[in-house]
Design a protein around this nucleic acid. Structure first.
Length: 593
RNA sequence: GGGGCUGUAGCUCAGUGGAUAGAGCAGCCGCCUUCUAAGCGGCCGGUCGUGCGUUCGAUCCGCACCAGCCCCGCCA
């Protein structure tokens, strides 16, 4: 069954066609801007040109010729210069939209577009032996929202956390643990120690490298180190790749430690994966992948023994080092191969920062050249970096890095202070729950409210703004709806069931209803554009329209009782739809705050 | 040198071929004896980076240029 807005659009198209004056192919409809008092418009320019008429005349002729039909959602039809404007009939809209929301409930806004098709979303991808920091939060949050959106579109979505659990840096981690000892602490503190060991090892290694370089410059014999840290790291890297039990045991310890720490963040953010195959998972497939790359002539063996590819005028890249080792690209090719075989997806979506754009163009080119990915759409969703409020990049080296767990803690602590000030009478447990929802919601919204390609800043003032376009405002609007509904049920009185929705004719009621009708369209657009901010904007506009309605239309004191009931039904529908929208973004909707 | 992303109000952003380019924040002014003022209304604020082109019509499409950020084989 189609949603109200889809039906309205079809009805308008049919109404124009029914006049017999415009060929169906020339009926192109647009959504007018907000300052135009109409819901759908037919700009007649092209059709008028084809028919040899001035556009305003065609528009006027059509306005007179459109058949009236009381069973459709079409209300006023007016020519406005060269435009033919259609408005939805407020009362028929009211009963249709509110009934739809009541009937579909949590599934209002969902579609069946992706029925029977699968989508893989590759997101989060924390590095093992590292704490998650703000750099990981974007992939995690945007990725989960895309998972939610594509599920709402009816796809079977497989979320895969592509752990950074492999690669040459792991040799360094193991070598560092062997040299300095295993961290004694637990949880994130142990991770911090691991990072320090890694940095300390690299620092010492750097010193050795500089001595070697100096010797070369001055022509002196190369110094001999015991141990040679670079050789040690490479040896452990190789040992790990070859399945050495000792290397493997240390590696597994790091993986377990990292995942346990990450899980706490995932739980708070509502992140749920279907799989967490790390890069290591694909190790066994790599020789086969390299052989197939060579056999398909997507890649060739260079004179120095490395295997390289040069495709589609893209820069040359390596899939096997001249020492026989593999790289990230090799594992990514294997990952595509595995996913195609295991899931047969219609799309694979990579939520990875924009600096890796070239990498993905190369990856997509080589898997096509190898004949792997014939019927799958490969999509890279690039996103910008996280900066300080004055635009400085956050980095470990600069010492201004913010770690995910402390970011969430800080946001919740700040939210807690606001709750304490705004609503001191709440019970302790509820204060804590509201603070968690508001703080975490603010962090999530900061990542989703705009185009992912833009850089975002870690600006506490804006993130935890209690006004304007913020998660808090959206949550507050939902809580206000719930407050009205709660009071209504306490009063007894007329329940939403008895509502006569035809009474909802106030302009602010109609505006709110029209906007509620747009959620299904927003979900579809968000999926088409891989753009969670489309949902965020829908939520924001919903909150604003509700805010106006709240000021202008008393609900509990509305008279007659049937109007009160109708408004209660509208408030319930608003709460439901807003909660659905926030749910897609992964933002909690408390009933009180 | 090649390539990618971004450029819209003082700041942060929507606007992906149509009508008078919209929000929030900041600034100024109003509205709480009435459902949560974490709210609502008003004012102020824009050569849509620049120039050509395509089109009946361009912030939007094409080309060139300018500015900022990012990427360009043995890291991920």
């Amino acid at each position: 069954m189609d949603y109200a807005l889809t039906r309205f659009t079809d009805e308008v198209r049919q109404a124009i066609a029914a006049t017999g004056r415009v060929p169906a192919a020339l009926i192109e409809l647009t959504t007018p801007k907000a300052n135009i008092p109409a819901d759908l418009a037919f700009p007649t320019f092209r059709a008028a040109k084809a028919l040899g008429l001035p556009p305003p005349q065609l528009a006027a002729d059509l306005a007179a010729a459109i058949p009236r039909n009381e069973t459709t959602l079409i209300g006023a039809v007016e020519a406005s210069g060269p435009f033919l404007n259609f408005s939805m009939h407020p009362q028929r809209l009211a009963s249709t939209v509110v009934s739809e929301i009541q009937a579909r409930g949590a599934a209002y806004g969902h579609h069946a577009d992706g029925q029977g098709r699968r989508v893989v979303v590759d997101y989060s991808a924390p590095n093992i032996a590292r704490r998650m920091h703000v750099g990981h939060i974007r992939s995690t949050i945007i990725g989960q929202t895309l998972v939610n959106i594509f599920r709402a579109l009816g796809y079977q979505v497989i979320g895969d956390n592509h752990l950074g659990d492999w690669g040459t840096q792991f040799g360094t981690v193991i070598a560092a643990i062997q040299r300095y000892g295993r961290p004694a602490a637990e949880g994130e503190a142990a991770m911090a120690q691991l990072e320090q060991l890694y940095a300390r090892y690299n620092h010492e290694l750097q010193a050795q490298t500089e001595q070697k370089e100096q010797a070369i410059v001055t022509g002196q014999p190369l110094p001999v180190f015991d141990p040679d840290l670079e050789a040690e790291a490479r040896r452990w890297s190789l040992a790990l790749e070859q399945g050495d039990p000792q290397a493997r045991a240390i590696w597994q310890w790091c993986v377990d430690l990292t995942l346990a720490a990450a899980q706490r963040n995932y739980d708070r953010l509502g992140i749920v994966f279907d799989h967490a195959y790390g890069e290591s998972f694909y190790e066994a497939m790599l020789p086969e992948v390299i052989a197939e790359a060579l056999h398909s002539e997507a890649a060739y063996r260079d004179v120095d023994g490395s295997v390289v590819a040069e495709l589609d005028k893209l820069p040359r890249f390596i899939i096997q080092r001249n020492d026989g080792g593999t790289v990230y690209m090799t594992r990514d090719i294997a990952t595509v191969k595995f996913r195609l075989r295991a899931f047969d997806p219609a799309k694979i979506i990579y939520v990875v920062d924009g600096r890796q754009e070239l990498h993905f163009r190369q990856l997509f080119a080589i898997v096509r050249a190898m004949g792997y990915a014939r019927d799958v759409e490969l999509v890279h969703i690039p996103f910008g970096i996280v900066t300080t409020p004055d635009g400085q990049p956050l980095s470990t080296r600069k010492g201004n890095m913010v770690y995910l767990e402390s970011l969430l803690d800080e946001a919740v602590a700040r939210a807690r202070a606001v709750v304490e000030q705004k609503n001191p009478e709440l019970a302790e447990a509820e204060k804590a729950a509201v603070a968690e929802a508001v703080g975490v919601g603010a962090v999530i919204y900061n990542d989703l409210y705009q185009d992912p390609r833009r850089n975002i800043s870690l600006d506490w003032e804006r993130m935890l703004a209690t006004e304007g376009n913020s998660a808090t405002y959206l949550q507050y609007s939902h809580a206000r709806c719930c407050s009205i509904l709660r009071r209504a049920s306490e009063d007894g009185g007329v329940g939403p069931e008895a509502a006569s929705l035809l009474l909802l004719t106030h302009p602010s009621e109609t505006r709110l209803l029209k906007h509620l009708a747009r959620l299904p369209e927003a979900v579809r657009e968000a999926g088409d554009r891989y753009a969670p901010f489309v949902i965020a904007e829908w939520c924001y506009t919903t909150a604003r329209e509700f805010g106006v309605f709240f000021e202008q239309c008393p609900v509990l004191k509305a008279d007659p009782p049937a109007l009160r009931a109708a408004r209660l039904a509208l408030v319930a529908a608003t709460a439901r739809a807003l909660k659905n929208g926030l749910g897609l973004l992964g933002i909690a909707a408390p009933e009180r705050m």
